[in-house]
């Protein structure tokens, strides 16, 4: 199954993925319209820093954009008392119509990847972009200016990680 991964060598912590994610989950799917109409909700992925400075990586530090790992078996699915959180072709999906906001899933997610906001919000792998291909398939991947975000299987991502990055990148970091 295709999932999203972040290459820590390329991520500079710009949070473009967070904004793109939040915008993707608004009715207008437009940054300015959604801000003006107050539609903007929380992002379903977050840039997380390991090291002292979140936006510029400190020596030995790492920044990563993380969201739902679509675990199997998924602790959030086990914890869901309504059946809202469920697996669908390997993806972990929340049927927000069924969600009652008990936050058992929030408590169970070891990655802190579920946001409690009336309903349980999480990465849904951009269902409205199902027709798109390439980097446009996912809003966060499309928005990533350094191509740190990668969509594919972990085996494919491992091949990306095995390739050296150009010297220019090291300088940028």
């Amino acid at each position: 199954m295709e999932r999203l991964f972040c290459d820590p060598r390329r991520c500079v912590g710009c949070r473009a993925c967070e904004i793109a994610c939040a915008v993707e989950h608004t009715p207008s799917k437009d940054l300015f319209v959604s801000v003006l109409n107050g539609e903007l909700g929380p992002p379903r992925r977050r840039v997380q820093a390991l090291g002292a400075q979140p936006y510029r990586v400190a020596i030995g530090g790492v920044v990563l954009s993380l969201g739902c790992h679509h675990c199997d078996p998924a602790p959030c699915v086990d914890a869901c008392i309504t059946g809202a959180m469920h697996k669908e072709d390997g993806q972990t999906v929340c049927d927000t119509d069924k969600c009652v906001g008990c936050w058992m899933c929030v408590m169970s997610c070891p990655y802190g990847a579920i946001t409690p906001k009336v309903k349980a919000l999480k990465c849904d792998l951009c269902p409205d972009r199902k027709d798109k291909v390439g980097r446009s398939r996912y809003a966060c991947v499309e928005a990533c200016p350094t191509e740190a975000l990668f969509a594919g299987t972990f085996e494919e991502f491992q091949r990306v990680l095995a390739e050296p990055i150009s010297a220019g990148w090291e300088g940028a970091r």
């Binding site: 991964f5 290459d7 820590p8 060598r9 790492v62 990563l64 790992h69 675990c71 199997d72 990680l161």
Partner: peptide
């Protein structure tokens, strides 16, 4: 030991 954690450990180890 879960696959998802192992993937993360591998990723940040690069």
């Amino acid at each position: 030991v879960e696959r998802e954690f192992q993937e993360l450990v591998h990723t940040v180890g690069v």
